[in-house]
């Protein structure tokens, strides 16, 4: 539901970087979205399309890479992908774990001319 503000933040980044790199038209934008981030891809595309109208990013394609939730156990050190939202170590059952990925919300790169 907050995809609108996320889309605006993406555009802010794109406008800034376009100026730095003398890009006058943006063709595509690559994003990383963690599976745990509360952002829906389709809704984000819709908001981006809406907000980018009349700007140098109008018509730009969003390439969205979803990133799995992975963790590392603080006790036994094993790394694992979180299944069905259970945040305990599957090897030793410890609840003391660090999240390695899954919260990403970043602009990785963009293509322009």
């Amino acid at each position: 539901m907050h995809e609108m503000s996320i889309a605006q933040s993406i555009l802010d980044i794109i406008f800034q970087e376009s100026q730095n790199h003398k890009v006058s038209r943006v063709l595509s934008v690559s994003l990383k979205l963690g599976e745990l981030s509360a952002v829906q891809s389709e809704s984000l595309r819709f908001c981006f399309e809406l907000l980018s109208k009349g700007t140098l990013a109008e018509g730009a394609k969003l390439d969205i890479e979803r990133v799995q939730v992975t963790c590392q156990c603080q006790e036994c050190g094993s790394k694992f992908t979180v299944q069905e939202l259970v945040f305990t170590c599957p090897s030793c059952n410890s609840p003391k774990i660090d999240m390695l990925s899954g919260r990403e919300l970043s602009v990785e790169s963009f293509e322009g001319e």
């Binding site: 980044i13 890009v23 990785e108 963009f110």
Partner: peptide
Amino acid sequence: TLKIPVVR
């Protein structure tokens, strides 16, 4: 076409 890495 330029590909611009950002990572932000």
